[in-house]
Design a protein around this nucleic acid. Sequence first.
RNA 1: GGAGAAAUGGCAGAGUGGUCGAAUGCGGCAGUCUUGAAAACUGUUGAGGGUCAUACCUCCGGGGGUUCGAAUCCCUCUUUCUCCGCCA
Length: 424
Amino acid sequence: MLQVGFIRENTEAVLKGLAKRNLKNAEELVANTISADEERRAIQTELDNVLAESNKLSKDIGMLFKSGERQKAEILKQKTVLLKEQSKNLTESLQNKTNELQEFLFLIPNIPNEIVPSGSTEDDNETVYNEGEIPVLHKEALPHWELAKKYDIIDFELGNKIAGAGFPVYKGKGARLQRALINYFLDKNTEAGYNEVQVPHLVNEASGFGTGQLPDKEGQMYHDAQDNLYLIPTAEVPVTNIFRDVILKEDEFPICYTAYTPCFRREAGSYGAHVRGLNRLHQFDKVEIVRVEHPTKSYEALDSMVNHVKEILQELKLPYRILRLCGGDIGFTSALTYDFEVFSTAQDRWLEVSSVSNFENFQANRLKLRFKNSNGKSELAHTLNGSSLALPRILAGLLENYQTPEGIKIPDVLVPYCGFDIIN
RNA sequence: GGAGAAAUGGCAGAGUGGUCGAAUGCGGCAGUCUUGAAAACUGUUGAGGGUCAUACCUCCGGGGGUUCGAAUCCCUCUUUCUCCGCCA
């Protein structure tokens, strides 16, 4: 959520940023926000004055009672009746106006960074980096869902029976490979200075709002109505919410966390060939990196996160590219996002395996995540996160790109984690 | 799940209807002293809104209520602790 003050003072820049996102009604939305804020503050001031007066009267009454001047006190009491009525009404309209303002603010996405390319669809994303060779596969090469069946390492039908579509069962070497990847990713992340944490897989409403999944993506999360808890769509939610309502000291930066969690997504509205196999699941595993940074350092941090993910993909020897997302494709809360895509040779398409974003202070504003700056003032921190990495599509890439007539080879770096070097 | 107790500033902990945003101690910060440090002493030290700056307003776990006035009384929710039950 943007800060109202920022919108008020940088209206032009805000509108320009929203235009890059192709946000409809941006002008109207911003105008409404600003006027709601003005009205809110006017009501607040009025209420404050009424309260100040009635506070003063109350004090006077107290003193009169103390000195035994009951009659005078009674007279003052009469005067408070009207004030009470007024403050009641003002409080109510303040609440309404605050809610209204909140609603507007919830609808305004983050302002994209200068270097975010304009554009409306994923076709307008800018490829900024490309590495790795696309292997030439043998004639009988198969897409990963066929390989999974052939070697009996992932059973989609079985998952179907137990839960439903999009909940695969990993078996034997497939299960072991999953575990190997999780451990490998966590080790790489901790070596790079990220602190490993284990967090709840269900979160409350406040946490959902804190990172911006609510109210924006309500329908995308599984929800337990009985206890009003949400299954996490990404570790970003519980990990970033560690810092909800926190005021950091400046010397605590940088804060780097990593966590493995399963992720749950309803994926309402996604069907068809592109969601086959591991391409899109309701439950999948992901290792996430999260950083909390000083505002002047967050883009440096973003670069270092990008380089870190690069290094992992290099070690896995997977062909990949990095995209800078355009204004139309970038997430609601993000100011700048780099997507990593691995080439899935047997499907002849790119699969997103990581998304690394700087949210600047957009999340921090909702989270109330601040630090004491050198002037002793509280200032919003910047938050970032990225996948390092998401398992299923890495797995898909590995299975497809490493297949040989003899079986699926295991990348060297994973062999110690797997305890085998081929799936056959 | 049942019974009881509790929730106050970074921490500990007082405060049971009025002048309490809150005693005191510890911690933090600044200063005095010191070659420097420690100790001692002095001062300072929560957050948000609002203002050019003041003023002023709000916040004592969350929400609601009683009252002219609530940290303090009532209701409710949440959390923690103790005991009992159940149990991976």
